[in-house]
Design a protein around this nucleic acid. Sequence first.
DNA 1: ACATTAACTGAGCAATGCTCAATATTGTTT
DNA 2: AAACAATATTGAGCATTGCTCAGTTAATGT
Lengths: 188, 188
Amino acid sequence: MDEGRRQLAEVGLAHFSAREVAKRVGYSIGTLYNVFGSLDGLILAINARTLRLWTADFRRRLAEAQGDRIAALIRGYFEFAAQNPKTWIAIYEHHLGDGAAAPRWYQDLVADLLGIAAAEIAAVLPAADPQQTAALARSLVATVHGHCAFSLYKTFDLLGETAPAQAALARVGEAIAAARQKGGASAP
Amino acid sequence: MDEGRRQLAEVGLAHFSAREVAKRVGYSIGTLYNVFGSLDGLILAINARTLRLWTADFRRRLAEAQGDRIAALIRGYFEFAAQNPKTWIAIYEHHLGDGAAAPRWYQDLVADLLGIAAAEIAAVLPAADPQQTAALARSLVATVHGHCAFSLYKTFDLLGETAPAQAALARVGEAIAAARQKGGASAP
DNA sequence: ACATTAACTGAGCAATGCTCAATATTGTTT
DNA sequence: AAACAATATTGAGCATTGCTCAGTTAATGT
C-alpha cells in the first residue's frame, strides 16, 4: 500500500488522486474506499507510514550518534525533510475536515516522534521540572520545524537563506544554554 | 474581489472553489479565468491581499507599541494568525506547480513583511554586521512561525501547549541576548 | 452610423471524490 | 459435494471541480 506514498511523493498533496493510486495498486476505487473510508483516511494512512519511517530514522541516527545527540536529531529533521519533501509537507498540510482532531492511533505516532526529542532534551537538563522540560522540548521542536519549513517553502527562501539548519542549531543551543543557567544544577 | 478571501476564510484552501467565488461575485467562471489566469493566480491574488493586511497590521501595532517593539510584533504574528486562520495558513500552504517561484511582485510583498521584522531586530543589535543581522532576523521569524504553526495545526497541539506565543517570546529573547553578547557593543 | 476593441459568457471536456447495487471470492456447515 | 453465509471486490453513475474557447454583449473611437 505504500504505492500511495510513492504517488504522494511524486505529485504532492494538492494533486494526489485516489483513483490514480487505485490504478497503480491494481484495485478498483471502490475497494480503496472500502479499506480507507475516504481520501482523508488514505492520506492519514500514508502520513502514518511517513511518521513511522521518520521515527525509525531518528532512532537510527541516535544509535549511530557520536557527539551531540541533539544536533544529530536536528540534522536528521532537515535531512529527512529534504529527502522526502512532498511526503514530509503532507504531514503538516493535511487537515481533517472542520478542524477535527486526528484519531488517537495517529496522535500516538506523533507523540512517539516528539517523545524522542523530548527525552534527549530532558537528558541535557537533568535537574529541571519535567513538565517545564516537556514544554521546552515542544518549543524547540517548533523552532526547528519553523526553520525547516522555511527552507522547503520556496516562497520564503527569497533572501537566500543558505544554512537554515545551522541557524536552527544555533537557536536551540542558545535556548538550552539559557535553560541550564536559569534552571536547577549547572554542570562544572 | 475579496469575496474570494471571504470564501477562503470559510472553507480553507483545500475546499476552495473558483466556481463558488464566481457565483458569489456575480461573474461567470470564464471572466474569473480571464482576470486571474488560473486557480493558482486567483489564490495568489487573495494571498497577496492577506499579506498586505498583515503588514498593515504590523505597522499599526508598531505605531501603537509602548514598550518592547519586538514583543509587539511577535504577539501580532500570533494574533493575526489566530484571527485569520484559514487565510493565514493559505499563505504557507499554497505552492505553485512543480515548485516554481512566485512572481516578483508577490515576493516583494513577502520581503516587505520580513523587512519590518528585520528592521526592528537590527535596531536592537546596532553594532552588528548587517548581513548577519538579516540572517538572524530570518531565523527569528522562522522560530516564531514554527511556534505559531504548531499552535494552529491541531495535529501537533496534542500535548496541550497552552502558551506557544510566550514560548516564542522566550526563544527570541534568548537569541537576541546571545547575539548581543557575542556581537559588537553591549549596552550598559 | 459604423467599426474596432475590450469585456464577458457558459456549454463542454476531462478529471476528481464518493456511493452502492451487483458480482465474485472465500469460508463454513451439513 | 453441495448449499449456505460472510466477506471482498467491482465499476457505472452522480455531483463537482479546473479550465477552454467560440461566440455574444458592451464599450469605445472615428
